[in-house]
Write a protein that binds this DNA or RNA. Structure first.
Length: 574
DNA sequence: GCCGTTTTCGGCCCGACTGTTTTCAGTCG
């Protein structure tokens, strides 16, 4: 998938144009095109081949030419032309908080600074304070920026950020002058990774709030404190920004602070067309500056003649247009989930017994649970032989009766290197549910990997393809695979795609979920792949992915009642 | 450079904060 490479190229061009001091709307145009391509679920090579590059919003004649050049030659003549004027390395300098395009260029021109190493040296000799429009304070600020950059963590998985955010929200709630608290930003939109935490507080006592915040025991360093916003670094090197507004602006501030930036820009453009102005304090009539909304988010959207839009959709991916048309999806909710169709037990590599898993599922209000332990070919995970599985099946039946709960006897088969499964089809058909996925030989070529998975699906015995792309967020890239071909095969064989809820996986990802639903009508199964009873609760992260993928209740297999589920499992088999 | 149920030309989100200024530019989100 070249999409990321093309997006990187356009972002680079945008940054270089900015350094050059080009028209800022041209700069924005390249960055916007990059964002659009990053969020594309179709490989850009396909669009190029079909002559459809211009159909990507934000891509016009000129940018299409640049993309073409890159796809055909593997490099970009335009980028090379730009780098003859401005060294590409300067983009790295802008990563330092406090250094933007103007300062980066100044540092280069005046002091020959091209990279972080050069900058560090210049800082230690106090060379920056004598530059035009800089002084000792700017120098100090950049020095601190460099330190922060070194220590600040990269984007972290949502699953790690969420507990920390909840802890901070609880901490702030204990203060009487704090009227409302909410975590915003990408966390509220439930993006798979989080860059920093954005916390919004409604209070009439800003100063006290700031003091309370910077006194949070997790704070390692205070980066900035102002009357309405401040930033700190936590002990885990995560940046947290706090914003305080008056209670009558809480809704508009919530809207503003949740983003995404692209979503906000679209809303503000709509406001302008209506003779209104939208900012974090409210919606105002331009003619007399009268505030017409701001206390709640619903009110803000309503002032723009829009229904409230769920945070998970706020990515400027068509949600505003659909909202305008009154056609937003009714997103699936946690309470719709009636069971988990892929969990392990201590029969293979899980740590809880079948009984413990079942009791936990019952406590969560589920109607059913599928025990899907590994099979023999996965030795490292204690995979079971057919004999063992038969034994397990009897026990599952017993527990099911004893607990008066629907426990499905299943397995997670391994899709072997050549596309075969652990057991012959006739054996697999004896299980009530067959989940299957790739667990080895990740480094095959894209063609081989695609062929392998398609072949497995075509056997017609797989109900659910587990963690379909094999990625581990921020750790292991998805294996090279043509998702379109897999979705096509899944559609034909009526195989469900898993949304694996483990915060490390979240696989299938949001964009592909939407594609699977809209272009192929495929049902998804939101599973935890839990290896312990505690991890059954991770289902909320899978639900978040489904919501970000625009899925409704009817699109999700495990929202089915027990009867409907049984029907589906049988039908898929026939 | 892109885009158009007001436009093929003239727009393109909005505000906080800081430092170096003599009224604002730069950075950030």
């Amino acid at each position: 998938m070249k999409n990321q490479e093309v997006a990187d190229l356009l972002n680079k061009i945008s940054a270089l144009l900015e350094l050059k001091g080009e028209n800022r709307f041209k700069v924005i145009a390249y960055a916007e095109a990059a964002r659009r391509i990053e969020n594309l679920s179709t490989p850009i090579e396909n669009l190029y081949r079909e002559g459809k590059l211009n159909q990507i919003p934000g891509v016009g004649q000129s940018i299409a030419e640049k993309i073409k050049d890159f796809l055909e030659t593997g490099k970009s003549a335009y980028l090379e032309e730009l780098t003859r004027e401005v060294p590409e390395e300067l983009i790295e300098l802008e990563k330092v908080p406090g250094v933007g395009p103007k300062v980066a260029l100044l540092l280069f021109k005046e002091l020959g600074i091209k990279n972080l190493g050069d900058l560090e040296k210049a800082l230690s000799s106090n060379l920056l304070r004598n530059l035009p429009r800089l002084g000792p304070k700017s120098e100090e600020n950049i020095k601190r920026g460099l330190e922060t950059l070194k220590r600040r963590s990269a984007r972290i998985p949502l699953g790690h950020a969420l507990p920390l955010a909840e802890e901070l929200v609880q901490f702030l709630k204990q203060f009487p002058f704090v009227k409302q608290v909410e975590a915003c930003g990408s966390l509220r939109r439930m993006k798979e990774t989080i860059g920093d935490l954005d916390i919004l507080v409604a209070s009439r006592e800003e100063e006290k709030t700031m003091k309370a915040f910077t006194g949070w025991p997790e704070v390692q360093e205070v980066l900035a404190v102002g009357p309405t916003k401040s930033s700190v670094l936590t002990k885990s090197a995560l940046q947290v920004d706090l914003r305080v507004v008056r209670p009558d602006s809480f809704g508009s501030a919530l809207q503003y602070f949740t983003g995404s930036q692209a979503h906000n820009i679209k809303l503000r453009e709509i406001a302008i067309k209506k003779g209104l102005k939208l900012n974090e304090y409210g919606v105002f009539r331009v003619e007399d500056d009268k505030k017409i909304a701001g206390e709640t988010e619903e009110e803000v959207y309503s002032a723009l003649d829009l229904p409230w839009i769920p945070p998970e959709l706020r990515e400027d991916q068509g949600e505003i247009e659909r909202a305008k048309a009154g056609d937003l999806p009714a997103l699936v909710e946690l309470k719709d989930i009636k069971g988990d169709l892929h969990v392990h037990s201590d029969w293979s590599d899980g740590t809880s017994t079948i009984e413990e898993m079942v009791k936990q599922a019952k406590a969560m209000g589920y109607e059913y649970l599928a025990i899907c332990d590994h099979a023999q070919s996965l030795g490292v995970a204690g995979g079971l032989t057919w004999e063992k599985f038969k034994e397990q099946g009897k026990i599952i039946q017993e527990i099911s009766q004893r607990e008066d709960f629907h426990v499905l006897w299943g397995l997670e088969a391994n899709i072997l290197a050549e596309g075969d499964l652990d057991f012959p089809e006739e054996t697999l058909k004896k299980f009530q549910i067959v989940v299957a996925g790739v667990h080895s030989a990740f480094r095959q070529s894209k063609e081989k990997m695609t062929e392998r998975i398609v072949k497995a699906i075509q056997k017609g015995v797989i109900h659910i393809l587990s963690h379909p792309t094999g990625r581990l967020i921020e750790k292991r890239d998805p294996y090279e695979v043509d998702v379109e071909s897999i979705l096509k095969a899944a559609q034909k064989n009526r195989t469900s795609m898993e949304i694996n809820s483990s915060p490390e996986r979240l696989d299938l990802r949001d964009l592909d979920c939407r594609k699977a639903k809209e272009e192929y009508g495929i049902k998804m199964a939101i599973n935890t792949d839990a290896h312990s009873r505690e991890n059954l609760s991770l289902i909320k992260f899978g639900v978040a992915v489904a919501r970000r993928g625009w899925l409704e209740k009817k699109d999700v297999l495990n929202t089915y009642s027990w009867d409907d589920l049984q029907g589906w499992l049988k039908k898929e088999r026939d």
